[in-house]
Design a protein around this nucleic acid. Structure first.
Lengths: 332, 332
DNA sequence: TTGTAGGCGTTATCAA
DNA sequence: TTGATAACGCCTACAA
């Protein structure tokens, strides 16, 4: 890689002159600037990023710590993060915790050595279940800004970007009750132990209670054969006329199983699931979904974190990104 | 952040002594080492990564450039890359090209300033279709190692990790012909313009030719309503008794559509798609898939790139990661 | 056993 | 208008 020193030597001028010329300083004459720029162009000079980082004590890099990226929600959030970071001339270093507390701790620890200016994190399932989150506070105490999204720890004070988990499921359920007159609504879930899962279930229950209906929750996260469990439930409870799934998997399975029991969708049973971009393609009829604005969550997270990085007196915020009920063909 | 200088000052010794003590140099006395280590521990000292990078002229960071991460194949490859990179104490900077040539060029350009030691890249759809790949050679000419995976440019000389696209579809088709005695096999695709898509279609065609059957290819990548196209085809060609999908979407849609036309799967029609971890969950009956070892592709890519980074006289290799036919319930 | 000095590539201050 | 120098934080050859 070409350096300032090399350019200086070739042009017989000093390093600092070259530096100033390249940065278009008013101190430098037009001719010198021209000479310098021409050579720099020719040798494809690019200022060494590492040196700039050392000098400026800032990396323009964000550490992004995700539980997984095979879950389409996090994939789409990452998409939003990457796009918006790039737009703001930030790079992202991505670490996957694989839902493991240890990996999450290690990643945070490893990047807290000047590698990044700040973190965007969705905490691992294990960290959330065990309520072990001291490592996050450690980072914050080291004055490295942290933004948490989706899976959030209430006890930690930092910027947060969350989904309207309670409200969205409340409304989805209410839609089934009020608009579709459904009376026997099942909730299926494979994420009931997560903060977001709990909130979504509460939204369902509130709506059910308001209508004096019976709550039916099928928890599947520790179960092998999800298909079979849903199928059996539907066989045993043939009065079921609607299903709400609070994740991006069980809704589609529920559609398949309901069809298998001979029910017509949406005539006999309505189904509302959670989903993102392509989810609807994969079911027939196309599943109605609570569409979480995953991309926007990523975008907002970057925006808020960069705000924090740039301003001296940043005050902590929590932003709620509202979801949208996107009706497909699995509701009437 | 605590620095060597600060430690030195507090202990009234020189910076180099501190440095050596922390690196457990034999030059330093046990007592000094203890004093230094204790204080370092107490102040949570961590060597500044940027300074180390500048000093060593190596970043221990890999630039990963992916077309997208919402496609589960790339998500799983990323998983493999991240895990193996971390294991080898490398970070990854992730850029998404969004299938755009321009974004891909920009990302490569931007990171070619010392930010990374090497690249892992799957070229964007646009770059591949337009056959514009000079930017990749530029990087290689700058002596930054590049590894390409999956979507590969034959004209470029560098390490490659690819899937056995031709062979896997050849075998899947052969399975339908020889084991299941299928005679009217349809291939559906939404990626026929990609190098991998072309190879997969060739594998299908070879197998079909070998058996003296008729080739039927349904190209859907520029089509709005994939469901409808598949449904119509099945209506118009009721003799169809097997479907091969060469992507991770159209196989599941084909199952749904075949069911819709009243066919029984796998009795009347067999379906084999492409897929990864969770794909099989989303269809009923569970789809049989060509399982690309996406995670392994990521792992191998990192391994090969790091080999290249470490050895002086690295010779260029292409590694083929074989896929596996994973029979589900959509074949007999 | 400890310390001094120089350098990685850049930028900024100050002097010429 | 240009150049010398110092500094960012770390490491290391060499001197003490």
């Amino acid at each position: 890689m070409t350096t300032l020193k090399e350019l200086a030597k070739l042009l017989n001028i000093s390093v600092s002159t070259v530096s100033k010329a390249l940065n278009d300083s008013h101190e430098i004459s037009a001719t010198t600037k021209r000479r310098v720029n021409e050579l720099a162009e020719k040798l494809n000079y690019k200022p060494n990023r590492i040196a700039q980082q050392l000098k400026s004590n800032t990396t323009k890099t964000i550490g992004v710590i995700l539980p997984t990226v095979t879950n389409p929600f996090f994939a789409e959030v990452l998409h939003g993060i990457e796009t918006n970071a790039t737009k703001n001339k930030y790079d992202i270093i991505v670490c996957l915790s694989d839902e493991s507390l240890t990996k999450e701790q290690r990643s945070l620890e490893l990047l807290s050595n000047g590698s990044v200016d700040g973190f965007i994190i969705a905490v691992a399932r294990e960290s959330q279940v065990l309520e072990q989150t001291a490592h996050i506070n450690t980072v914050i105490n080291n004055k490295i800004p942290v933004l948490m999204f989706d899976r959030v720890v209430n006890e930690i004070t930092c910027d947060k970007v969350v989904v309207d988990d309670f409200q969205s499921v409340f409304e989805a359920t209410e839609y089934l009750i009020k608009t579709e007159q459904r009376k026997h609504i099942l909730l299926v879930s494979n994420i009931e132990e997560l903060s977001v899962g709990k909130l979504r279930i509460k939204g369902y229950q509130k709506s059910i209670e308001d209508a004096n209906l019976k709550s039916n929750v099928l928890k599947l996260s520790k179960v092998d054969d999800v298909e079979k469990h849903i199928y059996n439930y539907l066989q045993d409870n043939p009065e079921t006329d609607a299903i709400v799934s609070i994740d991006h998997i069980t809704g589609i399975i529920a559609i398949n199983m309901a069809k298998k029991t001979g029910k017509n969708i949406p005539k006999d049973i309505s189904v509302i699931g959670f989903g993102y971009e392509h989810t609807q393609l994969l079911s027939s009829p196309k599943i109605s979904i609570v569409h979480q604005k995953a991309y926007e969550i990523g975008e907002m997270s970057v925006k808020l974190l960069i705000d924090n990085l740039k301003s001296e007196d940043h005050k902590v915020k929590t932003i709620v990104v509202p979801s949208e009920l996107k009706l497909g063909e699995s509701t009437k």
